[in-house]
């Protein structure tokens, strides 16, 4: 597999932030490749447009999702979800045109379209 659009991360990422350790939840992701580019879907329930950050830097794509502040709903009786913010980094395939990446989030699912640069798209050359 030559596409390097993934970087394995543990299920809970721990980023070193000065003296404070910050815990993150790694969102579940699907990546699909077509001839025009890649589609990345990541699950971030509780995150809306305002809490979303998509950073492209040094050939790496980082997605950060901050949960909309939930009002305190009383005492926790039972809890399975984790209240941490989401974070995950992916290594970008060099064929991706980083200026044309688009993102949308709908009901907690982030969808990124990562088109390939024109130069690397497969082209059919007809013999004249």
């Amino acid at each position: 597999m030559n596409a390097t659009l993934n970087k394995p991360t543990s299920s809970t990422d721990v980023a070193q932030n000065g003296a404070n350790r910050v815990n993150y939840v790694t969102p579940l992701a699907n990546i699909l490749e077509s001839k025009d580019g890649y589609v990345l879907e990541a699950e971030m329930p509780g995150v809306n447009k305002d809490g979303l950050e998509v950073i492209v830097e040094n050939g790496e794509l980082t997605i950060v999702g901050r949960r909309a502040v939930a009002e305190n709903r009383g005492r926790e009786v039972y809890r399975e979800s984790r209240a941490f913010d989401y974070r995950r980094a992916f290594e970008l395939d060099p064929s991706i045109d980083t200026t044309k990446i688009t993102a949308k989030i709908d009901q907690g699912v982030l969808t990124l379209h990562l088109p390939k640069a024109e130069a690397v798209k497969p082209r059919k050359i007809t013999v004249g």
Binding site: E43, P45, R73, G74, E76, V77, Y78, R79, S81, G108
Partner: peptide, 18 residues
């Protein structure tokens, strides 16, 4: 799934993205 209890209500939250 999470269950919360305030005095007068129970609140159940389920993460169901997409």
């Amino acid at each position: 799934l999470d269950v919360f209890d305030d005095k007068d209500n129970l609140v159940v939250k389920v993460e169901l993205p997409g």
